[in-house]
């Protein structure tokens, strides 16, 4: 087992160092940032930023081309009655749905992201996973979400976990690579910090909290922990890496607390879709209802947004 200040190699032959995590202080800081009150015009700006940073996601075994098409329409114009609402950043689907999504979003700013590499467990053989990634890219995915090899990582084989991300990055070509750490399975903040540094050193464009397939997902302290890892990495290498929170983010309030955490840790430069994403499905409707409340002065309800 490596100790917490061990060096990890980077793809350009250098190395990065992981810093220890004070779990109590981390949770206290996240809790303090989540008490931030955001009202009126700031709230509207936060809600719009949230929408622009959403990866609108459907990852179900019962996804159909029709469902993906309607999801894409919602991604392009989230509130049919209100053209001032921006489009989301991307739609996130399984590889089989990529072509349908690409057709639906063509000519818009919305990008198609695909999970790949035997999502969500990632337990196929390396050749199959790389082929899965290349296939999704070939079908038109502009962003690829893969999972960290937790089996290798947790058994201490950091080299294998690292090499597989390097291979995935190569298979992506020009597509952006997001590496899912599945923080709920890694056991401690320290492990997540180490996995974050490993994924960034191996060439991830984004690091992402969770698959959304297990209950423990994008908690506020965990997002703060990964934002601090990104700050460390930028300090040490000058390389900018994005952050994606996913799993369990359902309310507008949770989302703007994430914005506060990222803004306070990495700066407002990070509050753009190029550097920050929220993977979500039901979140979008809650944000739209909040905006309707700001517009009308009355609380809205699920009858006044489109069904997911």
């Amino acid at each position: 087992m490596m100790n917490s200040t061990a060096f990890l190699p980077t793809t350009d032959g250098g190395s990065v160092r992981t810093t220890p995590v004070d779990a109590v202080a981390l949770e206290a800081r996240a809790a303090a940032l989540c008490t931030r009150s955001i009202k009126t015009t700031s709230k509207r700006a936060a809600l719009h930023t949230t929408i622009r940073c959403i990866d609108l996601t459907t990852l179900e075994g019962i996804d159909t081309p029709g469902k993906v098409a309607s999801l894409c329409q919602k991604a392009i114009r989230p509130d049919p009655a209100n053209p001032t609402i921006p489009s989301v950043a991307a739609v996130c689907v399984y590889p089989e749905m990529v072509e349908h999504a690409v057709t639906s979003v063509s000519g818009t700013t919305v990008v198609v992201a695909s999970v790949a590499g035997a999502f969500p467990a990632g337990m196929s053989t390396p050749a199959v996973r790389v082929a899965d990634i290349a296939d999704a890219v070939g079908r038109g995915a502009g962003e690829i979400d893969i999972v960290l090899n937790r089996s290798a990582f947790m058994s201490g084989d950091l080299r294998r976990a690292y090499d597989e991300i390097v291979a995935a990055k190569e298979a992506c070509g020009t597509a952006h690579l997001k590496v899912i750490l599945e923080t709920g399975e890694l056991g401690s903040y320290e492990q997540v910090r180490r996995a974050s540094m490993l994924a960034m050193a191996a060439g991830a464009d984004f690091i992402k909290t969770s698959t959304g397939k297990i209950p423990k997902a994008a908690t506020h302290p965990m997002v703060l922990n990964m934002a601090e890892a990104i700050r460390d990495y930028a300090d040490q290498t000058g390389v900018i890496v994005g952050l994606k929170g996913a799993g369990g983010i359902r309310t507008a309030k949770q989302a703007w607390h994430h914005l506060v955490i990222v803004g306070e840790t990495l700066g407002s430069d990070w509050l753009t879709p190029e550097r920050f994403r929220l993977g979500a499905s039901s979140l979008l409707n809650d944000v739209l209802m909040q905006i309707q409340k700001l517009d009308t002065g009355h609380y809205s309800g699920p009858n006044y947004v489109t069904v997911d």
Binding site: G297, Y299, S300, G301, N303
Partner: peptide
């Protein structure tokens, strides 16, 4: 008044 205006009531 908030209940009367609430669209989900």
């Amino acid at each position: 008044p908030w209940a009367l205006g609430h669209m989900d009531v």
